[in-house]
Simulated assay, not measured.
Amino acid sequence: MDIRAVVKVRILGEEYTLRTEASPEHTKAVAEHVDRTIRAILSGSSTMETQKAAILAALQVTDELFREHVAMESLTNDMKQLAADIRPLLPPAKRGEEPGAA
């Protein structure tokens, strides 16, 4: 079963009809972010072509994504280390060990 929403969004005044598994709210928020990013790039130059601004926006949004992935990996590693540090302080039953099996 294909559960896809059809969502209309507007980017730089152009309307796009998207089929997506994401919620309409999420899809609209993503499109608004893209629209804001392109507009911010275009506002910095009076002669930039829209296509070039879209490519620069894609690079900027991808950079944001990559930075978030790195931050998430770092946070995950910190949480794993914290769990490893705390585990010996827990009672054996909470560690998943049998009593006396240390």
Rank of each mutant, 00 (worst) to 15 (best):
S23Y: 05
I38K: 00
E97P: 13
E64V: 11
P88E: 15
A40P: 14
T76W: 05
E73A: 10
Q60D: 12
R4W: 03
S74G: 11
S43I: 15
L65Y: 02
A102L: 08
D85P: 01
M79G: 15
E68P: 02
T50D: 07
P92G: 03
H26P: 08
V6A: 13
A93K: 11
A93L: 11
T47V: 06
E73F: 03
L56W: 04
R10H: 03
R19W: 00
R10L: 06
S74Q: 09
V61Y: 01
A5M: 12
G96Y: 12
L18D: 02
A102D: 12
T17V: 04
S43L: 07
I41F: 00
V34I: 10
M48D: 07
T20N: 12
D78K: 11
L65W: 01
V9P: 04
R87A: 15
E21T: 03
M79I: 15
T27Y: 02
D35K: 01
A40F: 06
T47M: 02
M79P: 15
A29M: 11
M72S: 10
S45K: 07
K8V: 08
A57N: 02
Y16A: 02
A93P: 15
L90Y: 14
P99T: 03
A29T: 04
A71D: 07
M1N: 12
D35L: 07
L90N: 08
R19E: 04
R19A: 02
V70R: 02
L89Y: 13
I3G: 11
P88Q: 15
P99M: 04
N77G: 09
T47W: 05
Q81F: 05
A58P: 09
A22W: 06
H33W: 14
A84G: 14
V34D: 01
R19V: 00
A93T: 12
Q51R: 06
S23L: 09
E15L: 04
Q51L: 08
V6P: 14
R19H: 03
Q51K: 07
G44S: 08
L18Y: 00
Q51T: 11
A22V: 02
E73R: 08
E25K: 12
D63Q: 07
L56D: 07
A40V: 14
I11W: 00
L82C: 14
L42E: 08
A71C: 10
L89P: 04
R4A: 04
E98V: 10
S23N: 06
A31L: 04
M48N: 07
L12M: 01
T47A: 00
L75F: 07
A5L: 13
A57G: 02
V7S: 01
R95Q: 13
A58R: 03
M48P: 05
E68T: 02
D35T: 14
A29G: 05
A93G: 15
M1T: 13
L56H: 04
T50L: 01
L42K: 06
T27H: 06
T27F: 02
T76C: 03
L82T: 15
S74C: 08
I86Q: 06
Q51P: 03
D35Y: 10
L65T: 05
A83Q: 10
H26G: 01
K94R: 14
P91S: 01
T50P: 00
Y16E: 01
A40K: 08
S45C: 10
M1K: 13
I3H: 14
